[in-house]
């Protein structure tokens, strides 16, 4: 019993200072975020580096996905040209080039587009987090 009495005793005063610390942190974080926003808006070296990072991330994402399309679709005429046998393969009674181009290419494009939207939004989220985080 005495041990139980002793244990909560040092804990009891903790909540109040802790609350104060949290509040202080929140207000400081807002302060920092505002400063980061100001740095972005005023084109300081830090703000400029942040924007360059975002642009580079988005551009490399777009280029990587275009490479996927370039290889996946752009490679087809070349493939059919150097390996005419591929064009004669039939699946379900239709020649492979017809199926690949007239049917399969559209879902492929949509999947690439869907992946881009997800990843681009993640890049933007990362950027927002970076700006709003207390230390960068």
């Amino acid at each position: 019993m005495t041990a139980d009495d002793r244990v909560p005793a040092p804990r009891a005063p903790q909540p109040r200072p802790r609350t104060r610390v949290v509040l202080a942190e929140v207000s400081r974080r807002d302060d920092r975020a505002d400063r980061t926003r100001a740095e972005l808006a005023q084109q300081t070296r830090v703000g400029d580096a942040l924007v360059r990072g975002l642009v580079r991330a988005q551009l490399s994402l777009a280029l990587r996905l275009s490479l996927v399309v370039l290889v996946g679709l752009g490679g087809l005429p070349w493939l059919f040209a150097i390996a005419p046998a591929v064009g004669r393969v039939t699946v379900f009674g239709a020649n492979l080039p017809w199926l690949l181009l007239a049917v399969a290419s559209f879902p492929f494009l949509i999947v690439v587009g869907w992946a881009y939207v997800r990843l681009a939004e993640r890049n933007e989220q990362d950027f927002t987090d970076l700006v709003q985080r207390p230390e960068h």
Binding site: S66, V69, G87, P97, L101, A102, S105, Y116, V117
Partner: peptide, 24 residues
């Protein structure tokens, strides 16, 4: 025939290029 199937594919893929590089 098959060589002009690139028209519909390209007309659709144009929107992917638009999405990747221009839209937002």
């Amino acid at each position: 025939g098959v060589d002009v199937l690139w028209y519909p594919v390209g007309f659709a893929a144009g929107y992917l290029a638009l999405l990747l590089f221009v839209a937002a």
